[in-house]
Computed example of a mutant assay.
Amino acid sequence: MSKSRKKEPTLYTQIITNNEEISPDVHVISFKRDFDFMPGQVVKIGIDTDHPPRIYSICSGNHEEEVQILFNIKEDGFLTPKMGAMIPGDKLLVSKPYGSFIGVNEPAWWIATGTGIAPFYSMFRSGMEENKKLIHGVAALNQFYFEDELEWALGSNYVRCCSRETSCDVFPGRVTAYLSEINELPNVKFYLCGKPLMVVEVRDLLIEKGVPYENILAEIYF
């Protein structure tokens, strides 16, 4: 007997209003918001009913008129090259938002790599930046998405870590190297978003430094 497949959520047609390349092969695609969501939640996105949709975090604020999705083009992928080529008026299939990786107003650290910054930018745009520290790790300096806005608003609570290039006010190394140099961590929630290896390494490091497991929340990007 074959295994039953998990039922995919219903997808609704959305009309693209904008598609901006904010860094080489990294885009923010937009459409009018016709649903409510909590900052940090995800949607499934597809372009037809013949291929399974993929999961993306919403990166816009929950009171903004448009929903924005941050994504990077994977040359060997099916969906992202087609999304990258879309223009206003094209149609996208999008599910209703869901997920439990949700921002809170209490103090917290947001730790992201690459496009994993998307849910934290949504939290930031939704007014949750007070008492937050954002640590963003990337390989190249042009991958600090939304950095001007974040630096202006967060100041010293916005930490950029770059593993392959150097610049003033940027930590020269990975997120794990930055965290390793901190002797005492605060008693707050730690939100992690990035690729599986990063999430595991940072989670283990935080636990080694005394952070309770229940204070660590993670969202994995593939």
Rank of each mutant, 00 (worst) to 15 (best):
S2A: 14
S2L: 14
K3F: 13
E8C: 05
E8W: 10
P9K: 07
L11H: 10
I15M: 11
T17F: 00
N19I: 09
N19A: 08
E21S: 03
E21R: 06
S23H: 11
S23G: 11
I29G: 00
S30I: 13
S30K: 02
S30Q: 06
D34S: 15
D34C: 13
F35I: 05
D36I: 11
F37L: 02
K44D: 09
I45Q: 01
D50R: 11
H51T: 06
S57K: 01
I58L: 07
S60I: 02
G61W: 00
G61N: 02
G61P: 03
N62R: 07
N62L: 14
E66S: 09
I69T: 07
F71H: 01
N72I: 11
I73E: 09
G77C: 03
M83N: 05
G84Q: 08
I87L: 13
D90V: 09
L93Q: 14
L93G: 04
S95M: 02
P97G: 06
G99Q: 07
G99S: 05
G99V: 12
S100N: 15
S100R: 15
I102C: 00
N105L: 09
E106G: 09
E106H: 13
A108I: 01
G114T: 00
T115A: 08
M123H: 03
F124R: 00
R125V: 10
M128A: 07
E129Y: 13
N131H: 15
K132P: 03
L134R: 01
I135T: 06
G137I: 00
N142S: 15
N142L: 01
Y145G: 00
W152D: 15
A153G: 12
G155K: 15
V159M: 05
V159E: 00
R160Y: 03
T166M: 14
T166W: 05
S167G: 13
D169G: 10
G173P: 00
Y178P: 02
S180W: 06
S180M: 15
E184T: 15
E184G: 10
K189C: 12
K189P: 03
P196K: 10
L197G: 07
M198D: 00
V200W: 07
R203V: 12
R203L: 10
L205P: 04
L206Y: 06
L206H: 04
K209R: 14
G210F: 08
P212I: 13
I220W: 08
